[in-house]
Design a protein around this nucleic acid. Structure first.
Lengths: 337, 337
DNA sequence: TTGAAAGCGCTAACAG
DNA sequence: CTGTTAGCGCTTTCAA
């Protein structure tokens, strides 16, 4: 019943297995008549070519590997959707690995993916060892990074213009008259530093003083953010605005402000980052910076598949940069007199 | 440089490739000395056994297939995280397919997964043809369904007690004194009907009249819900509560109520379903029914891997039922005098 | 404890 | 247009 092989089909059709192979692979050199006959038998017995045998010969898996930080985070799940939808429409499957932001785990999953012969790799915001990347390059495997950057030449990137995004947020608050702006730092992901740089540059350009006390430690989730916000507010009373490293951080910050009996945006203007879905239905709809996450995934998938179809391009660098966008809602207000 | 095979390692070590195979597979019948020598060479040349060759012989892929409705939906992404984390910790990878709630696509992805020789399958809330399921059963492939049910015996399920969940919601509102409760119906996923039944039973038991006008059409997302809510409120003025089929539906409903200049819970009590993360930071923190989504994924993965290790159990039915839980927040109020 | 032989199911290369 | 041969890289079986 099971395991119908190409040979059995050939036998049943009274031809050699090669003729069957040709039919399966749509080779044109098969007589119409023989072809139809074989097709009928294939259908009747539900023959499916053996994936491993094909892989063994062709070294192709029709599978793409995707490593993300945390698939539950809407940022990644939307990106993953972009990747999966594109891949599936082109008859590739995607193995999703959840690194939990752990770079050792990332390395482990990477080697699992490699050993499964994935045809291409999309690595999202994960920090790998430079040595690992170099190995990957040597292996000539199509490789696209999203929102991360390495000091190695000729890699493929899909990334947001984070400096620009950071500037968008900082300039907006400054324009609203804010001078003392607290920065709740996101984890040390790619882009974080550029956004901090943009903040500092904006402050400097506008002749606003600031120092290290304007920056929190790394904040990993909304609970961290809640604590950090309560802490800084209790210490310093003259801040009027908060830049949150991402929307979850903004969420925690907003909760903290409310729990202290203060108002958003009355006492604190808050701006987030990412424009996750929930931001528009928050207690105070959140002003934030929009990142096209689905697009990151889609472009990354398209690029990786292009690369695997044209191996000569693999070592050509390509960088696609996407501009983020300010989404104004109600969590920021002007304090200009 | 590339493609170091077992034979090359054998040659380098001056043994047969079988001895290398034994070392790789931790067979004990290898002299300590030879073993170490081979291990050293393996490490030196970075030898990795070829996945396809192994698969061709063993028919095992160390891969699990997961089909979800929409990976971007927090319900599925959290479930997927449960699946992925468990699988990865046991050295399985997972191919994630995004069916977009389309049952034809689901069938297509299913056959892609099958042709890739996945060792097991987790199918989440997706409606497949009964015939397809039967085929799957014949193939003896480990198979676990989450939150869906078929009229075929001896299948493996991980599911929530949806009747109980529905009852929880309905009884809660009735207890608060509500009599005219509008039901915003979720898409026709598994469990939806049981929750509606629970609602009807609760109403009947409490001698509360209701009819078809108490139920909306199927609602697929927050925008649908927004429209549907505006519509029913404009028509009927005496409803005091809304049961939303899921939290996104509740989100749309709440927006609509506010946009009509009405209050939650003052004019309408709203209860959601799922307890997604964002519900606690909504404009009015949402009372909802908690479903342990990570647990669904975790249990499904554990079960599927158990099954593939004990093939004799594959056709034994097992149903794990999880009780949902009421999470009281601020979106419902008592109207008892 | 080790090795030789066979073969998993397919495709590439060539011959007819 | 069709068939033969060889071999991808490994494991299973059996023999030594």
């Amino acid at each position: 019943m099971k395991n119908i092989t190409i040979k059995k089909i050939a036998e049943l059709a009274g031809v050699s297995h090669m003729t069957v192979s040709r039919v399966v692979n749509r080779d044109k050199y098969v007589k119409e008549e023989t072809k139809n006959k074989i097709l009928k038998i294939i259908k009747k017995y539900g023959y499916e070519p053996n994936y491993f045998a094909i892989g063994l010969k062709t070294k192709k898996s029709k599978t793409i590997g995707l490593i993300v930080g945390d698939i539950e985070n809407p940022y990644y799940s939307r990106l993953a959707k972009g990747v999966i939808n594109v891949c599936e429409s082109l008859n590739y499957n995607v193995i999703v690995c959840n690194s939990q932001y752990d770079s050792e785990l990332s390395e482990k999953y990477l080697s699992m993916l490699l050993s499964k012969g994935v045809d291409g790799l999309i690595i999202s915001n994960i920090d790998l060892k430079v040595e690992t990347i170099k190995n990957l390059k040597e292996k000539q495997i199509p490789l696209v990074f999203t929102n991360i950057k390495y000091d190695i030449g000729d890699l493929n990137y899909i990334k947001a213009d984070d400096y620009y995004g950071g500037k968008l947020a900082a300039e907006y608050l400054v324009r609203l008259g804010h001078r003392k702006i607290y920065f709740l730092r996101p984890p040390d992901v790619y882009g974080a530093q550029e956004r901090i740089d943009a903040f500092k540059d904006t402050m400097t350009k506008n002749k606003i003083n600031f120092d290290d006390s304007y920056f929190s430690d790394f904040i990993f989730n909304e609970d961290d953010s809640y604590m950090a916000t309560k802490k800084f507010i209790s210490k310093q009373k003259d801040f009027t605005a908060i830049i949150a490293g991402n929307d979850f951080i903004a969420m925690g910050a907003m909760e903290a402000v409310f729990d202290l009996g203060l108002e958003v945006p009355g006492d604190f203007s808050i701006i987030g980052y990412d424009n996750l879905k929930f931001t528009k239905i928050m207690r105070v709809p959140l002003t934030t910076i929009k990142q096209p996450k689905y697009l990151f995934g889609k472009l990354a998938a398209e690029r990786v598949i292009e690369l695997l179809k044209r191996p000569n391009k693999i070592n050509k660098k390509k960088e696609i940069v996407i501009k983020p966008e300010l989404i104004e809602r109600l969590s920021c207000m002007s304090i200009n007199k």
